[in-house]
Design a binder for these strands. Structure first.
Length: 398
DNA sequence: GATCCGTGGAC
DNA sequence: TGTCCAAGGAT
């Protein structure tokens, strides 16, 4: 493999630009026997050379110039803060950098140190997390903070294996923290890195089956030193030049090493097996408004969908919801009125359609069991997920 | 391995 | 408008 690299490099430099319509797939899979033939023909028509092996140093040099400046990122040559790295990594799971920014700042301002977060009530953590989605992350964040204080004396574990034992920290996050915060040689592989590697090697195996292969390639590329910078460089590359839809291969520091680029169809990688979308679920939600404007609200069950978050009373959300049964599930007897229109919301695995009913309650009305009257001005700072904010807005509209 | 978990933005 | 996607983890 290594010796070929020298040959290929030489060929790349010597050969004229390869035609786009070449058949690189077959070139890659040439047998030793066929190579002879090709070499003979090479005099007349140079074969498509294989890509030179990608070099970590090449990417690190690019990173030094083009790295993003992010709130949780230490400046070059400054030590990383494990607390910040951890907090950001949890928030960034399946979430865009742009969305995380303000949440990260608010969390850090409210709980500057791990110990502060660990001693905070879960309720407060969920309030600050509201709107960011995937609320199990917030619950695990809280449990994790307490575990580090109790099991590790408040100091973050500095090895991948030990980090992996903490709630909310999986293979990716453990490797990311080990590499970025502690300089360990670890290889986190996120969606960005999967894409970069899949293109680099033109991997035809679709995700998620290709994960082990992709991880092996990423691991082979990881340098012994600066593994944290290397991981972040891979992610920055994937977030900027090596983007999902229209990769800017011309600007990529690794374009000479990229098999997919040579094929000319980098944007088609990684291959993916399509996942089925959930069927529509429907239900009714009840916005009860007391004379002083307070809204009837309750806390959802601690686990599962929107676990531990606030909601207004609703029916179950089912595929066969019957509108005619809606009033039978209202939280109390009243002159419920159906608010025209519906509230639509799309979760990861199913779309939801809620019809909203509204009723007024007397000033002294007692809340039903497990529910309470919430002053309207407090709604903004309570742990309502967005779907519930939509429902309330719809319910109190005219 | 397949499902369950939110949300907002880009195209 | 529909689809895809974003620094994944838990079960």
């Amino acid at each position: 493999m290594k010796p070929l690299c020298q040959i290929d490099k030489a060929m790349t430099l010597a050969a004229p630009r390869v035609r786009k319509k070449a058949r690189p797939a077959k070139v890659v899979q040439k047998t030793a026997a066929r190579k002879k033939t090709v070499r003979k023909r090479a005099a007349a028509k140079p074969p498509a050379p294989r890509e030179p092996a990608p070099r970590a140093a090449t990417l690190l040099a690019w990173y030094a110039r083009h790295r993003r400046h992010l709130p949780w990122r230490a400046r070059p040559s400054e030590p990383a803060d494990p607390y910040r790295v951890w907090l950001s990594e949890i928030m960034l799971q399946q979430t865009t950098v742009k969305a995380v920014g303000p949440y990260f700042e608010r969390f850090l301002a409210r709980w500057p140190r791990l110990q502060d977060l660990a001693s905070a009530p879960l309720e407060d953590v969920l309030k600050l997390w509201a709107g960011l989605g995937y609320y199990a992350r917030a619950r695990n964040l809280h449990v994790c903070a307490r575990a580090i204080v109790e099991r590790h004396g408040g100091a973050f574990p500095d090895t991948e294996d030990t980090l992996r034992t903490l709630p909310g920290i999986g293979a990716y996050t453990a490797a990311a923290i080990a590499a970025i915060a502690f300089g360990r040689k670890a290889t986190p592989v996120d969606g960005n890195i999967e894409r970069v590697i899949a293109r680099l090697h033109a991997i035809e195996t679709p995700l998620p089956a290709a994960k082990p292969l992709i991880h092996a390639h990423a691991q082979a590329l990881t340098p012994a030193r600066h593994a944290g910078d290397f991981a972040q460089a891979m992610m920055d590359l994937g977030a900027s030049l090596c983007s999902p839809k229209r990769p800017a291969c011309a600007l990529c520091p690794w374009n000479d090493a990229c098999a997919a680029h040579r094929r000319g169809d980098a944007e088609t990688f990684p291959r993916k097996t399509p996942k089925a979308n959930g069927a529509l679920r429907r239900g009714a939600a009840y916005v009860a408004v007391r004379a002083d404007g307070a809204i009837l609200a309750r806390v959802r069950p601690p686990a599962g969908l929107l676990g531990g978050m606030m909601e207004v009373p609703t029916t179950d959300w089912t595929h066969d919801f019957d509108e005619r049964d809606a009033l039978a599930h209202a939280p109390f007897k009243a002159a419920w009125q159906r608010v025209p229109g519906v509230v639509r919301h799309v979760f990861t695995h199913f779309p939801l359609e809620l019809t909203v009913y509204r009723a007024r309650a007397a000033a002294g009305a007692r809340p039903p069991k497990d529910a309470r009257w919430l002053p309207q001005h407090k709604i903004a700072n309570e742990a309502f997920p967005n779907v519930m904010r939509k429902v309330i807005a719809h319910g109190i509209s005219d």
